[in-house]
Nucleic acid binder design. Structure first.
Length: 491
RNA sequence: CGGGGUGUGGCGCAGUUGGCUUAGCGCACUUGCAUGGGGUGCAAGGGGUCGUCCGUUCGAGUCGGAUCACCCCGACCA
């Protein structure tokens, strides 16, 4: 058991914070609600970025960058959009400081008031559509398939590292299409890209589906999402893809001439995932010993730790380790040989455990004698001795196995925490005593959805794709329903 | 914005019916020796004026007031 940490059962949020801290991922900044992502945490984010970026490019997208500041007036163009974000925006009102006359320090120069305030982007639809307007004249200009890696600011009341911070990093894709069908197809395509990434790289199983009108993105006609289940039984929205219809095209007057020489409004999508994914990663796989990383996202996949008593042994091990490291690198495995003499081996074991390094190889004099190494896997916390002959191939296979095992473990956790409720009492009882996903009937109205949220604090996470049709009665109103939808309390 | 809580070396805390006074302890740090297959032991060191301001008092980390900051629980959200 690691020192200075809390168990999941004792206090889930404390446990979460301990992992973030002990794994050296991030810390609260002195700036309100903001987070400092530390080098190790950022290295994981870079793995996320590079894998996603490749997937975006493979689906025909290109990267671009748009301004951080958005003129206030842009927001008023799309009514529901501004309504969704107005309450959480940082606003720039002045552009200059000056020394206070009483010498007390620096003050905002009242003379330097902006005529039109600038909003620090909470999301970039408006500035991008204002730009797209100039890019699009003809059907030949379409589609536009841009992605932006950026930071955004949402002035949240309460923040938590990675899960909700005032400033966060993300990517936002913004596409423009000639037809509705094409835009819908894009929306779906990107949701599947997200699901593919989250399941295959992050080893987190997700439910793909459509948001109910209540939970829809401000300004979208449809919001598709992937929902994951955390170890405390709460749901986490891991990614969203929005079909924006022609809302933003109309708001920013973006029209194109089609083949028949007729003016039409452009169809739009937007989609994004954020550093929140790191939060999902932590809450899905970690245990009481710290972070557990899936090999595909681990900045270091294998760490080699020498155990020695004297200089002679140390050198013999270093030589062996260097050879092994080279072999592993040749297989595209990232490996670190930690020969730091100022830390003891036991200390290192704990260190890398807390940081979630998937595989640890310990080499001591005893191992050298027997031509073997001790291989420990982070996911199961088991160790075994492996002969140096063929060890690289063994490790490669082991990494795949760990990746797979983490996904299977998370999947079976989700399966055993997914329930059906047929009555209101059952529904509440599950939420209170067996937190998890709950499939239940809902009469399809917004009023009922809101009422359920108010009474139970659970929301409709999504209406899953390919949801089986099933006649039933709404758990709240008893009105007829044709399918169950996915409920949960959520982050 | 409502409810609760906390501010004492780098981190985590103890100390409060005001005076035993030189403000302690654990971790971390420095040095030395030993040790080395799961956060190693021993010894010696360096470092704080108790969030800030005002007040009560012969005397305040300790009492009162104000103020600032942060944390937790709600409402808002990726």
């Amino acid at each position: 058991m690691a020192k200075n940490s809390t168990t999941r059962e004792e206090n889930y949020s404390q446990w979460y914070n301990d992992i973030v801290k002990n794994a050296d991922l991030a810390e609260n900044s002195s700036v309100r609600g903001c987070m400092v992502i530390k080098p190790y945490g950022y290295a994981i984010w870079e793995k996320v970025q590079s894998a996603l970026d490749k997937m975006f490019k493979d689906t025909g997208h290109v990267n671009a960058y748009f301004p951080l500041f958005i003129p206030k007036s842009f927001f008023s163009r799309e009514a529901s959009h501004v309504e969704g974000f107005a309450k959480e925006c940082a606003v720039v009102t002045h552009y200059r400081l000056k020394n206070a006359e009483d010498g007390s320090g620096v003050v905002v120069d009242p003379e330097a008031k902006l005529e039109e305030e600038l909003i620090v982007r909470p999301t970039s639809e408006t500035i991008i559509w204002n730009t797209y307007k100039n890019w699009i004249q003809s059907y030949r200009d379409l589609p536009i398939l841009c992605n932006q890696w950026a930071n955004v600011v949402r002035w949240e009341m309460r923040t938590r590292l990675f899960l909700r911070t005032a400033e966060f990093l993300w990517q936002e894709g913004h596409t423009a299409h000639a037809t509705r069908e094409e835009a819908v197809e894009e929306t779906e395509r990107m949701l599947h890209v997200y699901a593919d990434f989250v399941e295959n790289f992050m080893a987190i199983p997700v439910v793909k589906g459509v948001k109910s009108p209540n939970e829809r993105f401000a300004g979208a006609l449809d919001t598709y999402c992937i929902e994951a289940l955390m170890q405390d039984g709460k749901a986490l929205q891991a990614g969203t893809s929005h079909f924006l219809g022609q809302n933003f095209a109309k708001a920013f007057d973006v029209k194109f001439l089609n083949k028949d020489n007729q003016l039409e409004y452009v169809w739009a999508t937007s989609w994004g995932v954020s550093t929140r994914l790191i939060g999902a990663l932590i809450m899905t796989h970690s245990d009481d010993n710290g972070l557990v990383l899936p090999p595909k996202l681990a900045p270091t996949q294998v760490v080699i730790i020498p155990i020695y008593k004297n200089e002679e042994q140390r050198q013999a091990i270093a030589e062996k380790a260097a050879g092994l490291a080279a072999e592993l690198k040749a297989l595209n495995i990232t490996v670190k040989f930690d020969d730091d003499d100022t830390k003891r081996s036991g200390w290192k074991f704990n260190e890398y455990e807390q940081k979630g390094v998937p595989v640890r190889i310990a080499i001591g004099p005893r191992d050298l004698e027997n031509n073997q190494a001790e291989v420990a896997r982070r996911d199961t916390l088991t160790k075994e001795s492996v002969s140096f002959d063929g060890i690289a191939a063994y490790i490669q296979k082991l990494l795949d196995e760990i990746q797979n095992n983490l996904f299977q473990k998370a999947l079976s956790f989700r399966d055993t925490h997914t329930y059906k409720a047929d009555t209101w009492e059952e529904f509440i009882d599950l939420l209170d005593n067996k937190p998890g996903f709950v499939y239940a009937h809902w009469d399809g109205t917004q009023e009922t959805e809101e009422k359920i949220k108010e009474l139970s604090k659970a929301t409709i996470r999504c209406i899953p794709f390919n949801n089986p049709k099933e006649e039933g009665k709404c758990i709240l109103t008893g009105k007829p329903s044709s399918q169950r939808v996915l409920f949960a309390r959520s982050y």
